[in-house]
């Protein structure tokens, strides 16, 4: 049945009158490609702000942690789940959390999926992640999900805080995405995040935090 449907569909498509492949107009390079590094960061911040995200730029780790503490306090966060991706792991947030009075939960602490799911849905008020890239053209974070970057941390809690090294700010999607799929790499999921979860489905009234985070903070480091 399955094979038959497949063959029948493909046969019909193949026997259809062939059409020629239309020529592609050449597109001038994106405006963002002409920006220098500083302008790229500014563009990223401006575009993110247009979609309701907030970005801060910190010179060093100490400043970053101070800002993180301030945000967690402001959002009344007592427990947060933090990914252990390449950006966050060196920050070693768990002992730091103990010092500032916020319990930092690691997804690795759960040996069953249901326990992890319950925690990320119900037991933490914030999710903290690194990001693989920040894209200037649209103010977008790129997160590659893998064993160190679970999907729900940046989705289920009401607050999402993402840390991005300045060197990871790129002008356009192409630079980021091509490298992630390079050499046959196929990340199971890549997510592009541009602002908090939003809707305007009732009477066109904007409402943030429809399903995912109500707040998105981006901490640019460097």
């Amino acid at each position: 049945m399955e094979t038959n449907a497949r063959e029948a569909i493909l046969d019909r498509l193949k026997s259809a009158h062939p059409a020629s492949v239309p020529p592609r107009p050449s597109l001038p390079p994106a405006r963002e490609l002409a920006l220098d590094a500083g302008e790229c960061v500014a563009r990223f911040q401006e575009q993110l702000a247009a979609q309701g995200g907030v970005a801060f730029q910190m010179a060093d780790e100490a400043a970053l942690l101070a800002r993180l503490e301030e945000i967690l306090r402001q959002e009344a966060v007592t427990r947060a789940m933090a990914a252990e991706d390449a950006v966050l792991a060196p920050l070693d947030l768990s002992p730091w959390g103990n010092r500032v009075g916020v319990e930092i939960v690691s997804p690795a602490a759960f040996n069953d999926r249901d326990g992890y799911t319950r925690a990320v849905f119900d037991q933490v008020q914030a999710g903290i992640t690194g990001a693989d890239y920040a894209v200037a053209e649209s103010g977008t974070l790129v997160l590659v999900h893998d064993a160190r970057q679970p999907r729900l941390i940046s989705l289920a809690p009401l607050v999402h805080i993402a840390v991005v090294p300045l060197a990871r700010v790129v002008p356009t999607y192409e630079a980021a995405i091509a490298s992630l799929f390079d050499g046959g790499r196929r990340p199971s999921q890549v997510t592009l995040i541009t602002g908090p979860s939003m809707t305007a489905d009732i009477q066109a009234t904007p409402f943030r935090g429809m399903h995912g985070p109500q707040k998105l903070y981006v901490l640019l480091l460097g």
């Binding site: 575009q47 247009a50 979609q51 997804p107 759960f110 999926r113 992890y116 799911t117 053209e137 649209s138 103010g139 977008t140 999900h145 893998d146 064993a147 679970p150 999907r151 729900l152 995405i177 196929r186 990340p187 199971s188 999921q189 890549v190 997510t191 592009l192 995040i193 541009t194 602002g195 908090p196 979860s197 939003m198 995912g212």
Partner: peptide
Amino acid sequence: GQAAGAYISLDSGPRKNGENDG
């Protein structure tokens, strides 16, 4: 009229070993 929707997800197969969710 957005430059990008809030979320764009690109999925290439199911989760891989060691992933918490997906």
